[in-house]
Nucleic acid binder design. Structure first.
Lengths: 204, 204
DNA sequence: CTTATCTCTAAGCAACCGCTTAGTATGTCG
DNA sequence: CGACATACTAAGCGGTTGCTTAGAGATAAG
Protein backbone atom coordinates (compact mmCIF):
# COMPACT_ATOMS: atom_id res chain seq x y z
CA UNK A 1 0.00 0.00 0.00
CA UNK A 2 2.71 2.45 0.95
CA UNK A 3 5.69 0.65 -0.53
CA UNK A 4 8.68 2.43 -2.00
CA UNK A 5 7.66 1.13 -5.41
CA UNK A 6 4.59 3.35 -5.51
CA UNK A 7 6.39 6.35 -4.13
CA UNK A 8 9.16 6.05 -6.69
CA UNK A 9 6.98 7.71 -9.32
CA UNK A 10 6.51 10.73 -7.12
CA UNK A 11 8.83 13.65 -6.75
CA UNK A 12 10.99 13.92 -3.63
CA UNK A 13 9.44 17.32 -2.83
CA UNK A 14 6.61 15.66 -0.90
CA UNK A 15 8.89 14.94 2.06
CA UNK A 16 8.44 18.52 3.22
CA UNK A 17 4.71 18.05 3.75
CA UNK A 18 3.75 17.54 7.38
CA UNK A 19 2.16 15.99 9.35
CA UNK A 20 2.60 12.45 8.12
CA UNK A 21 -1.12 11.85 7.52
CA UNK A 22 -1.39 15.02 5.44
CA UNK A 23 1.49 13.84 3.26
CA UNK A 24 -0.01 10.38 2.81
CA UNK A 25 -3.29 11.99 1.80
CA UNK A 26 -1.57 14.29 -0.70
CA UNK A 27 0.34 11.39 -2.25
CA UNK A 28 -2.83 9.30 -2.43
CA UNK A 29 -4.60 12.20 -4.15
CA UNK A 30 -1.74 12.72 -6.62
CA UNK A 31 -1.78 9.05 -7.59
CA UNK A 32 -5.56 9.04 -8.00
CA UNK A 33 -5.62 12.30 -10.01
CA UNK A 34 -2.80 11.08 -12.26
CA UNK A 35 -4.48 7.73 -12.77
CA UNK A 36 -8.10 8.68 -13.38
CA UNK A 37 -8.18 12.46 -13.57
CA UNK A 38 -9.38 14.98 -11.00
CA UNK A 39 -13.08 14.84 -11.79
CA UNK A 40 -13.21 11.04 -11.94
CA UNK A 41 -11.59 10.80 -8.51
CA UNK A 42 -13.83 10.87 -5.44
CA UNK A 43 -12.79 12.00 -1.99
CA UNK A 44 -13.66 8.46 -0.87
CA UNK A 45 -11.10 7.11 -3.39
CA UNK A 46 -8.41 9.36 -1.97
CA UNK A 47 -9.20 8.47 1.64
CA UNK A 48 -9.24 4.74 0.84
CA UNK A 49 -5.85 4.97 -0.90
CA UNK A 50 -4.48 6.74 2.18
CA UNK A 51 -6.01 4.06 4.40
CA UNK A 52 -8.31 6.45 6.23
CA UNK A 53 -11.98 7.38 6.46
CA UNK A 54 -13.59 9.81 3.96
CA UNK A 55 -13.88 12.51 6.61
CA UNK A 56 -10.13 12.45 7.30
CA UNK A 57 -9.49 14.37 4.09
CA UNK A 58 -11.03 17.47 5.66
CA UNK A 59 -8.82 17.42 8.75
CA UNK A 60 -5.83 18.52 6.68
CA UNK A 61 -7.38 20.09 3.57
CA UNK A 62 -10.18 22.54 3.00
CA UNK A 63 -11.57 20.75 -0.05
CA UNK A 64 -10.79 18.32 -2.83
CA UNK A 65 -9.76 21.30 -4.96
CA UNK A 66 -7.34 22.38 -2.21
CA UNK A 67 -5.63 18.99 -2.50
CA UNK A 68 -5.28 19.53 -6.25
CA UNK A 69 -3.90 23.00 -5.73
CA UNK A 70 -1.23 21.83 -3.27
CA UNK A 71 -0.13 19.07 -5.66
CA UNK A 72 -0.16 21.46 -8.62
CA UNK A 73 1.72 24.21 -6.78
CA UNK A 74 4.42 21.95 -5.33
CA UNK A 75 4.72 20.15 -8.68
CA UNK A 76 5.08 23.39 -10.63
CA UNK A 77 7.68 24.70 -8.20
CA UNK A 78 9.68 21.51 -8.51
CA UNK A 79 9.35 21.53 -12.29
CA UNK A 80 10.61 25.12 -12.43
CA UNK A 81 13.54 24.20 -10.17
CA UNK A 82 14.51 21.29 -12.43
CA UNK A 83 14.37 23.59 -15.44
CA UNK A 84 16.35 26.47 -13.99
CA UNK A 85 18.75 24.42 -11.88
CA UNK A 86 21.20 23.74 -14.69
CA UNK A 87 24.11 26.15 -14.89
CA UNK A 88 26.59 26.11 -17.72
CA UNK A 89 28.54 28.95 -19.34
CA UNK A 90 28.01 27.49 -22.83
CA UNK A 91 24.47 28.12 -24.18
CA UNK A 92 24.49 24.87 -26.17
CA UNK A 93 25.57 22.67 -23.27
CA UNK A 94 23.17 24.46 -20.97
CA UNK A 95 20.26 23.85 -23.34
CA UNK A 96 21.20 20.20 -23.78
CA UNK A 97 21.51 19.52 -20.06
CA UNK A 98 18.33 21.46 -19.27
CA UNK A 99 16.24 19.63 -21.86
CA UNK A 100 17.68 16.31 -20.68
CA UNK A 101 16.75 16.89 -17.04
CA UNK A 102 13.38 18.50 -17.80
CA UNK A 103 12.28 15.71 -20.15
CA UNK A 104 13.66 13.14 -17.74
CA UNK A 105 11.66 14.66 -14.88
CA UNK A 106 8.43 14.34 -16.87
CA UNK A 107 9.13 10.62 -17.34
CA UNK A 108 10.50 9.77 -13.91
CA UNK A 109 7.89 11.72 -11.95
CA UNK A 110 5.11 11.12 -14.40
CA UNK A 111 2.51 10.92 -11.64
CA UNK A 112 3.20 14.46 -10.48
CA UNK A 113 3.78 15.71 -14.01
CA UNK A 114 0.41 14.48 -15.25
CA UNK A 115 -1.44 16.37 -12.53
CA UNK A 116 0.68 19.45 -13.21
CA UNK A 117 0.10 19.38 -16.96
CA UNK A 118 -3.42 18.03 -17.37
CA UNK A 119 -5.49 19.16 -14.41
CA UNK A 120 -4.94 22.93 -14.64
CA UNK A 121 -8.52 23.46 -15.74
CA UNK A 122 -9.95 22.05 -12.51
CA UNK A 123 -8.30 24.72 -10.35
CA UNK A 124 -10.29 27.65 -8.99
CA UNK A 125 -9.58 30.97 -10.75
CA UNK A 126 -7.52 32.19 -7.75
CA UNK A 127 -5.43 29.03 -7.55
CA UNK A 128 -5.08 28.89 -11.32
CA UNK A 129 -3.58 32.36 -11.29
CA UNK A 130 -0.85 31.19 -8.89
CA UNK A 131 0.31 28.30 -11.06
CA UNK A 132 -0.15 30.33 -14.25
CA UNK A 133 2.52 32.67 -12.94
CA UNK A 134 4.89 29.72 -12.43
CA UNK A 135 4.10 28.48 -15.94
CA UNK A 136 4.94 31.90 -17.34
CA UNK A 137 8.33 31.72 -15.66
CA UNK A 138 8.92 28.30 -17.22
CA UNK A 139 8.09 29.58 -20.70
CA UNK A 140 10.22 32.69 -20.24
CA UNK A 141 13.21 30.66 -19.10
CA UNK A 142 13.12 28.36 -22.13
CA UNK A 143 12.78 31.32 -24.46
CA UNK A 144 15.70 33.17 -22.90
CA UNK A 145 17.87 30.06 -23.25
CA UNK A 146 17.06 29.84 -26.95
CA UNK A 147 17.64 33.59 -27.27
CA UNK A 148 21.05 33.29 -25.67
CA UNK A 149 22.04 30.57 -28.12
CA UNK A 150 20.88 32.69 -31.03
CA UNK A 151 22.90 35.67 -29.76
CA UNK A 152 26.01 33.51 -29.48
CA UNK A 153 25.50 32.32 -33.03
CA UNK A 154 25.18 28.67 -32.04
CA UNK A 155 21.42 28.58 -32.67
CA UNK A 156 19.43 29.77 -35.68
CA UNK A 157 15.64 29.74 -35.46
CA UNK A 158 12.95 31.05 -37.81
CA UNK A 159 10.49 31.97 -35.02
CA UNK A 160 11.91 32.48 -31.52
CA UNK A 161 8.67 32.27 -29.55
CA UNK A 162 7.20 29.46 -31.60
CA UNK A 163 10.37 27.37 -31.52
CA UNK A 164 10.77 27.83 -27.76
CA UNK A 165 7.19 26.72 -27.29
CA UNK A 166 7.88 23.64 -29.40
CA UNK A 167 10.91 22.70 -27.29
CA UNK A 168 8.91 23.06 -24.10
CA UNK A 169 5.94 21.22 -25.62
CA UNK A 170 8.13 18.28 -26.63
CA UNK A 171 9.38 17.81 -23.07
CA UNK A 172 5.97 18.26 -21.45
CA UNK A 173 4.27 15.71 -23.68
CA UNK A 174 6.58 13.02 -22.29
CA UNK A 175 4.22 12.90 -19.30
CA UNK A 176 1.38 11.87 -21.64
CA UNK A 177 3.00 8.98 -23.50
CA UNK A 178 5.66 7.67 -21.12
CA UNK A 179 4.99 4.31 -19.47
CA UNK A 180 7.30 2.98 -16.72
CA UNK A 181 7.17 -0.49 -18.27
CA UNK A 182 8.46 0.74 -21.64
CA UNK A 183 11.88 -0.02 -23.09
CA UNK A 184 13.41 3.40 -22.51
CA UNK A 185 14.53 4.71 -19.12
CA UNK A 186 13.83 8.35 -18.15
CA UNK A 187 17.59 8.90 -18.45
CA UNK A 188 17.61 7.64 -22.05
CA UNK A 189 14.62 9.79 -22.96
CA UNK A 190 16.46 12.81 -21.57
CA UNK A 191 19.55 12.06 -23.67
CA UNK A 192 17.52 11.47 -26.83
CA UNK A 193 15.52 14.65 -26.37
CA UNK A 194 18.63 16.75 -25.68
CA UNK A 195 20.06 15.50 -28.96
CA UNK A 196 16.85 16.12 -30.93
CA UNK A 197 16.44 19.63 -29.55
CA UNK A 198 20.03 20.59 -30.38
CA UNK A 199 19.46 19.40 -33.94
CA UNK A 200 16.31 21.57 -34.07
CA UNK A 201 18.13 24.66 -32.87
CA UNK A 202 21.72 24.50 -34.11
CA UNK A 203 23.00 26.72 -36.86
CA UNK A 204 23.60 24.45 -39.89
CA UNK B 1 -25.83 28.99 -30.48
CA UNK B 2 -25.24 27.04 -33.67
CA UNK B 3 -23.32 29.67 -35.62
CA UNK B 4 -20.59 28.81 -38.09
CA UNK B 5 -18.10 30.39 -35.71
CA UNK B 6 -18.55 27.64 -33.18
CA UNK B 7 -18.54 24.90 -35.75
CA UNK B 8 -15.34 26.18 -37.32
CA UNK B 9 -13.27 24.49 -34.63
CA UNK B 10 -14.78 21.13 -35.45
CA UNK B 11 -13.74 18.79 -38.17
CA UNK B 12 -15.85 18.50 -41.32
CA UNK B 13 -16.33 14.77 -40.68
CA UNK B 14 -19.39 15.43 -38.56
CA UNK B 15 -21.52 16.16 -41.61
CA UNK B 16 -21.93 12.42 -42.16
CA UNK B 17 -23.74 11.97 -38.84
CA UNK B 18 -27.52 11.66 -39.23
CA UNK B 19 -30.17 12.49 -38.24
CA UNK B 20 -29.73 16.20 -37.66
CA UNK B 21 -30.52 16.06 -33.93
CA UNK B 22 -27.99 13.28 -33.40
CA UNK B 23 -25.31 15.40 -35.07
CA UNK B 24 -26.17 18.47 -33.00
CA UNK B 25 -25.94 16.35 -29.87
CA UNK B 26 -22.56 14.92 -30.88
CA UNK B 27 -21.16 18.37 -31.64
CA UNK B 28 -22.50 19.72 -28.34
CA UNK B 29 -20.85 16.82 -26.52
CA UNK B 30 -17.54 17.32 -28.33
CA UNK B 31 -17.48 21.00 -27.38
CA UNK B 32 -18.34 20.25 -23.75
CA UNK B 33 -15.80 17.42 -23.47
CA UNK B 34 -13.07 19.56 -25.05
CA UNK B 35 -13.91 22.50 -22.83
CA UNK B 36 -14.33 20.88 -19.42
CA UNK B 37 -13.32 17.27 -19.83
CA UNK B 38 -15.50 14.16 -20.06
CA UNK B 39 -16.02 13.62 -16.34
CA UNK B 40 -16.79 17.26 -15.59
CA UNK B 41 -19.45 17.32 -18.30
CA UNK B 42 -22.99 16.29 -17.36
CA UNK B 43 -25.57 14.87 -19.74
CA UNK B 44 -27.68 17.91 -18.83
CA UNK B 45 -24.81 20.17 -20.08
CA UNK B 46 -24.74 18.37 -23.38
CA UNK B 47 -28.49 18.48 -23.85
CA UNK B 48 -28.62 22.19 -22.97
CA UNK B 49 -25.86 22.99 -25.50
CA UNK B 50 -27.84 21.09 -28.14
CA UNK B 51 -30.99 23.00 -27.12
CA UNK B 52 -32.89 19.89 -26.05
CA UNK B 53 -34.10 18.15 -22.90
CA UNK B 54 -31.78 15.88 -20.86
CA UNK B 55 -33.69 12.78 -21.97
CA UNK B 56 -33.12 13.55 -25.67
CA UNK B 57 -29.52 12.35 -25.37
CA UNK B 58 -30.77 8.78 -24.99
CA UNK B 59 -32.88 8.82 -28.14
CA UNK B 60 -29.76 8.74 -30.30
CA UNK B 61 -27.07 7.37 -27.96
CA UNK B 62 -26.91 4.49 -25.53
CA UNK B 63 -24.98 6.40 -22.89
CA UNK B 64 -22.70 9.36 -22.23
CA UNK B 65 -19.76 7.04 -22.85
CA UNK B 66 -21.23 6.11 -26.23
CA UNK B 67 -21.17 9.78 -27.20
CA UNK B 68 -17.50 9.95 -26.23
CA UNK B 69 -16.75 6.81 -28.22
CA UNK B 70 -18.40 8.14 -31.37
CA UNK B 71 -16.46 11.41 -31.11
CA UNK B 72 -13.21 9.58 -30.37
CA UNK B 73 -13.67 7.06 -33.17
CA UNK B 74 -14.63 9.59 -35.83
CA UNK B 75 -11.85 11.90 -34.62
CA UNK B 76 -9.22 9.18 -34.73
CA UNK B 77 -10.31 8.10 -38.19
CA UNK B 78 -10.08 11.66 -39.44
CA UNK B 79 -6.73 12.16 -37.77
CA UNK B 80 -5.38 9.00 -39.42
CA UNK B 81 -6.70 10.18 -42.78
CA UNK B 82 -4.96 13.55 -42.41
CA UNK B 83 -1.71 11.78 -41.54
CA UNK B 84 -1.77 9.21 -44.33
CA UNK B 85 -3.37 11.39 -46.99
CA UNK B 86 -0.13 13.01 -48.13
CA UNK B 87 1.54 11.37 -51.08
CA UNK B 88 4.94 12.38 -52.33
CA UNK B 89 7.70 10.33 -53.92
CA UNK B 90 10.41 12.15 -51.98
CA UNK B 91 10.63 10.99 -48.32
CA UNK B 92 11.75 14.42 -47.13
CA UNK B 93 8.94 16.34 -48.84
CA UNK B 94 6.45 13.72 -47.75
CA UNK B 95 7.53 14.04 -44.11
CA UNK B 96 7.43 17.83 -44.25
CA UNK B 97 3.97 17.97 -45.81
CA UNK B 98 2.62 15.29 -43.45
CA UNK B 99 3.91 16.99 -40.31
CA UNK B 100 2.56 20.31 -41.57
CA UNK B 101 -0.95 18.99 -42.14
CA UNK B 102 -1.00 16.83 -39.00
CA UNK B 103 0.16 19.63 -36.70
CA UNK B 104 -2.18 22.03 -38.46
CA UNK B 105 -5.12 19.69 -37.90
CA UNK B 106 -4.42 19.59 -34.16
CA UNK B 107 -4.58 23.39 -34.05
CA UNK B 108 -7.48 23.99 -36.45
CA UNK B 109 -9.70 21.23 -35.06
CA UNK B 110 -8.48 21.60 -31.53
CA UNK B 111 -11.93 20.79 -30.14
CA UNK B 112 -11.98 17.34 -31.71
CA UNK B 113 -8.26 16.82 -31.14
CA UNK B 114 -8.50 17.45 -27.41
CA UNK B 115 -11.19 14.81 -26.98
CA UNK B 116 -9.18 12.42 -29.15
CA UNK B 117 -5.94 12.92 -27.24
CA UNK B 118 -7.00 13.54 -23.66
CA UNK B 119 -10.16 11.52 -23.01
CA UNK B 120 -8.94 8.05 -23.99
CA UNK B 121 -8.97 6.93 -20.37
CA UNK B 122 -12.71 7.48 -20.03
CA UNK B 123 -13.58 4.93 -22.74
CA UNK B 124 -14.81 1.46 -21.84
CA UNK B 125 -12.22 -1.31 -22.35
CA UNK B 126 -14.01 -2.50 -25.50
CA UNK B 127 -14.24 0.97 -27.03
CA UNK B 128 -10.68 1.78 -25.96
CA UNK B 129 -9.45 -1.25 -27.88
CA UNK B 130 -11.03 0.08 -31.07
CA UNK B 131 -9.30 3.47 -30.93
CA UNK B 132 -6.07 1.90 -29.64
CA UNK B 133 -5.89 0.02 -32.94
CA UNK B 134 -6.24 3.30 -34.85
CA UNK B 135 -3.55 4.87 -32.67
CA UNK B 136 -1.22 1.99 -33.42
CA UNK B 137 -1.70 2.64 -37.14
CA UNK B 138 -0.84 6.30 -36.60
CA UNK B 139 2.38 5.43 -34.76
CA UNK B 140 3.35 2.84 -37.34
CA UNK B 141 2.82 5.27 -40.19
CA UNK B 142 5.07 7.92 -38.68
CA UNK B 143 7.77 5.37 -37.97
CA UNK B 144 7.70 3.99 -41.50
CA UNK B 145 8.02 7.52 -42.89
CA UNK B 146 11.11 8.11 -40.75
CA UNK B 147 12.43 4.69 -41.72
CA UNK B 148 12.01 5.47 -45.40
CA UNK B 149 13.99 8.68 -45.02
CA UNK B 150 16.76 6.84 -43.20
CA UNK B 151 16.90 4.21 -45.97
CA UNK B 152 17.18 6.93 -48.60
CA UNK B 153 20.03 8.52 -46.66
CA UNK B 154 18.19 11.81 -46.18
CA UNK B 155 17.51 11.16 -42.49
CA UNK B 156 19.89 10.04 -39.74
CA UNK B 157 18.44 9.21 -36.33
CA UNK B 158 20.01 7.69 -33.21
CA UNK B 159 16.84 5.85 -32.12
CA UNK B 160 14.21 5.14 -34.78
CA UNK B 161 11.28 4.32 -32.50
CA UNK B 162 12.06 7.03 -29.97
CA UNK B 163 12.57 9.72 -32.57
CA UNK B 164 9.34 8.79 -34.39
CA UNK B 165 7.49 8.98 -31.10
CA UNK B 166 8.99 12.43 -30.50
CA UNK B 167 7.83 13.69 -33.91
CA UNK B 168 4.31 12.42 -33.29
CA UNK B 169 4.34 13.77 -29.74
CA UNK B 170 5.35 17.23 -30.92
CA UNK B 171 2.36 17.42 -33.29
CA UNK B 172 -0.14 15.98 -30.82
CA UNK B 173 0.80 18.41 -28.06
CA UNK B 174 -0.32 21.29 -30.27
CA UNK B 175 -3.87 20.44 -29.17
CA UNK B 176 -2.89 21.17 -25.57
CA UNK B 177 -1.28 24.59 -25.93
CA UNK B 178 -2.91 26.06 -29.05
CA UNK B 179 -5.36 28.92 -28.52
CA UNK B 180 -7.43 30.28 -31.45
CA UNK B 181 -6.81 33.84 -30.24
CA UNK B 182 -3.02 33.44 -30.40
CA UNK B 183 -0.74 35.15 -32.89
CA UNK B 184 -0.01 32.08 -35.02
CA UNK B 185 -2.46 30.55 -37.47
CA UNK B 186 -2.78 26.76 -37.75
CA UNK B 187 -1.16 27.09 -41.18
CA UNK B 188 1.86 28.87 -39.68
CA UNK B 189 2.21 26.27 -36.93
CA UNK B 190 2.21 23.56 -39.59
CA UNK B 191 4.99 25.28 -41.54
CA UNK B 192 7.10 25.90 -38.43
CA UNK B 193 6.72 22.32 -37.25
CA UNK B 194 7.56 20.87 -40.66
CA UNK B 195 10.77 22.90 -40.61
CA UNK B 196 11.66 21.91 -37.03
CA UNK B 197 11.04 18.21 -37.69
CA UNK B 198 13.19 18.21 -40.82
CA UNK B 199 16.01 19.77 -38.84
CA UNK B 200 15.59 17.02 -36.22
CA UNK B 201 15.76 14.24 -38.80
CA UNK B 202 18.03 15.38 -41.61
CA UNK B 203 21.47 13.93 -42.14
CA UNK B 204 23.94 16.71 -41.23
C1' DC C 1 -60.73 7.77 -39.40
C1' DT C 2 -57.33 4.28 -36.97
C1' DT C 3 -52.94 2.59 -36.20
C1' DA C 4 -48.11 2.64 -35.99
C1' DT C 5 -43.72 4.83 -35.76
C1' DC C 6 -40.51 8.24 -34.65
C1' DT C 7 -38.85 12.11 -31.83
C1' DC C 8 -39.14 14.53 -28.25
C1' DT C 9 -40.33 16.24 -22.99
C1' DA C 10 -41.75 16.27 -17.94
C1' DA C 11 -40.96 14.00 -14.05
C1' DG C 12 -38.44 11.28 -11.27
C1' DC C 13 -35.55 7.19 -9.37
C1' DA C 14 -31.61 5.04 -7.23
C1' DA C 15 -27.00 5.86 -6.58
C1' DC C 16 -23.33 8.71 -5.66
C1' DC C 17 -21.13 13.17 -4.84
C1' DG C 18 -18.47 16.68 -1.67
C1' DC C 19 -18.67 17.88 2.69
C1' DT C 20 -20.46 18.35 7.77
C1' DT C 21 -21.70 16.96 12.32
C1' DA C 22 -21.32 14.56 16.54
C1' DG C 23 -18.64 11.83 19.11
C1' DT C 24 -14.43 8.80 20.40
C1' DA C 25 -9.60 7.64 21.33
C1' DT C 26 -5.09 9.38 22.48
C1' DG C 27 -1.74 12.32 24.27
C1' DT C 28 -0.14 16.50 26.93
C1' DC C 29 0.17 19.87 30.36
C1' DG C 30 -0.92 21.57 35.08
C1' DC D 1 -6.21 13.28 38.65
C1' DG D 2 -8.99 16.83 35.42
C1' DA D 3 -8.91 20.12 31.42
C1' DC D 4 -7.92 20.69 27.02
C1' DA D 5 -6.19 19.94 22.20
C1' DT D 6 -5.42 16.99 18.30
C1' DA D 7 -6.53 13.34 14.96
C1' DC D 8 -9.53 10.47 13.72
C1' DT D 9 -14.34 7.75 12.53
C1' DA D 10 -19.46 6.64 11.94
C1' DA D 11 -23.26 8.42 10.19
C1' DG D 12 -25.59 11.16 7.28
C1' DC D 13 -27.32 15.60 4.75
C1' DG D 14 -28.55 18.17 0.73
C1' DG D 15 -27.63 18.28 -3.90
C1' DT D 16 -26.32 16.21 -8.34
C1' DT D 17 -25.50 12.33 -11.33
C1' DG D 18 -26.58 9.09 -15.39
C1' DC D 19 -30.38 7.20 -16.95
C1' DT D 20 -35.54 5.51 -17.20
C1' DT D 21 -40.45 5.79 -17.57
C1' DA D 22 -44.76 7.43 -19.22
C1' DG D 23 -46.76 9.99 -22.33
C1' DA D 24 -47.40 13.96 -25.84
C1' DG D 25 -47.07 15.72 -30.53
C1' DA D 26 -46.11 15.04 -35.39
C1' DT D 27 -46.18 12.37 -39.53
C1' DA D 28 -47.52 8.93 -42.71
C1' DA D 29 -49.59 4.57 -44.29
C1' DG D 30 -53.74 1.71 -44.57
Amino acid sequence: MTSLGEYALLDQSWHDVVPDAARRMLIAAAQAFADKGYHATTTRDIAARAGMSPAAVYIHYRSKEDLLFQISRIGHERSLKVLTGVQDPDPVDRMARTVASFARWHAEFRTTARVVQYELGALSPEHHAVVAELRRKIETHVRSMVEEGVRSGAFTVPDLKGTSLAVLSLCIDVARWYRPDGTRTPEQIGSLYADLVLRMLRTP
